[in-house]
Design a protein around this nucleic acid. Structure first.
Lengths: 151, 151
DNA sequence: CAAAATTTGTTTACAAAGAAACAATCTCCA
DNA sequence: TGGAGATTGTTTCTTTGTAAACAAATTTTG
């Protein structure tokens, strides 16, 4: 009873083990872990890929809109975009109708690269829910989409 | 068609909007946002609360076991525990049978505090899934538990 | 129209978290 | 027994992301 805990599975989490915030954090750590196992060599980080993917499908999108959609803060977006620009993957353009804004576009080389990266990214994504059945995985996705207000 | 995107809901995410990693990140950001709205005044961060909660239910647990269960890396755990110690919330003890290890216990003052914090934390947790029905919320929790290998 | 308020992106300073190297201790086995 | 290897926690350094202050451009409003 009063024996000090020695092993992980003896730990009593009490109600914490049904707290959404806690479960979500564990889930995300697991996903990140697998991401670097499976695709770490392609030297693209998850955040970078999501930015590039959205740029592939929304050429000329404004930095602010991109950030709002991906929930990336302005200060951080500035660094991300500069890094991608330094790698020659994106170009920036100040539009005439609002000279505060910046429009971002993939370079031609990046278009090919991102299409290819999409192949292994979504292959990896499909493999992430392996301990769930296909139906459970669909259900989880649908619930998460509703939870975050997408769809 | 080729009109540049101007507003958030025009953005085309393509398959990204069903990627578990992406949805999970959005979900966690939403949860954190709400955490600081609702309970930010209690100057406890989510990570700190989870550590204190587990200590409440597992007095004298070893730092390594605590870290493994909560998926907190050793280096980070050291800082967390020291911070809690500086706030007078936990005490550290080197057990005789393994002088590398550290056993952590809540101070008496902290016990009361954490029990109280649990009240508002789990109230907040219940309110987090507001745009889901009770059944959907249970389902989401169960799927996440299976996904991360709990239960 | 002109002043005030807002939006957009950048900079600077900082906090959270991880990686790698390290020291101390313990375990295992020849 | 004693030495090789593993475990535990700490330190140091780096990365990732946020907060706050700022400058420039735009919008609002009196």
């Amino acid at each position: 009873m009063d024996m000090p805990i020695r092993t992980t599975d003896e730990v009593n989490l009490d109600r914490l083990d049904t707290a959404l915030g806690f479960l979500m954090r564990l889930a995300q750590l697991k996903i990140y872990e697998r991401f670097f196992e499976e695709v770490g060599d392609h030297n693209l980080k998850p955040g970078e890929f999501s930015v590039l993917w959205v740029l592939l499908h929304n050429p000329g999108i404004r930095q602010s809109v991109l950030g709002q959609r991906l929930m990336i803060k302005r200060a951080h977006m500035t660094k991300l975009i500069r890094s991608l620009e330094d790698q020659g993957l994106v170009s920036r353009r100040i539009p005439d109708d609002d000279r505060r804004a910046v429009e971002i576009t993939l370079t031609p080389a990046a278009v090919t690269m991102v299409e290819q990266a999409g192949d292994w990214f979504f292959t990896y994504e499909d493999s992430v829910g392996e301990n769930l059945s296909a139906a459970e995985r669909r259900q989880l996705t649908a619930l998460l989409r509703k939870f975050v207000g997408l769809g």
